[in-house]
Amino acid sequence: MTEFGASCGMAALLDRVSEGDQDAWRYLVEHHGPMVWGAARAYSMNRADAEDVCQVTWVLLAENLHKLRQPDALPAWLATTARREALRLVKARRRETPAGLDTLLLDVADIADGPENRAVRTAVLSRVAQAFAGLSQRCQQLLRVVAVAPDTSYNQIATALGMARGSIGPKRNRCLTALRQSLAATGMPEEAAG
């Protein structure tokens, strides 16, 4: 993975992809996959729909690679495509709300490791999940992308979510403040959240 990141610009990387270099394609997926998933999941009602959105995004890239005029615009293209396809699918499903985490809480107990930590960890994660689910739709979308794709730039986040670039930082801070206040309201000390 680092082979491409360190030595290869985006244009050269896409050249290798178009020549059928599987390792170059895999690098693209590994490097941008979390951001595509974050954008898809932010607008999809469930994981199955988000998986379909991710898959169609990558297939669209594969078939339209030769049309990409600005290689450096690839992350924005991926984010825009994932959001557009997710929104299209939401319309088709006649659903209007974003994915919440409340339906996933039952999974936490099964995944947490170590019986001695399970109860505490489950309680902490459940409170974080509940606090997240109580945020506005826009805050959930923004924090989800920021959380799952920490390397994503504000420009890419703005593109993925259809927000003004200059508003990402302030909105991120406001949403984190809202999350912090919600956690405090449930009695969770700040150090426990970390």
Binding site: W37, R47, Q55, D107, L125, R180, G194
Partner: peptide, 25 residues
């Protein structure tokens, strides 16, 4: 801290599915 906690929640409860990455590849 809140963002790190949220990241942990999402990685545990709603991670990027291996199946999605496989399909992308």
């Amino acid at each position: 801290d809140e963002l790190r906690a949220l990241r942990a929640v999402l990685q545990l409860c709603d991670p990027v599915p291996e199946r999605a990455l496989d399909a992308a590849c």
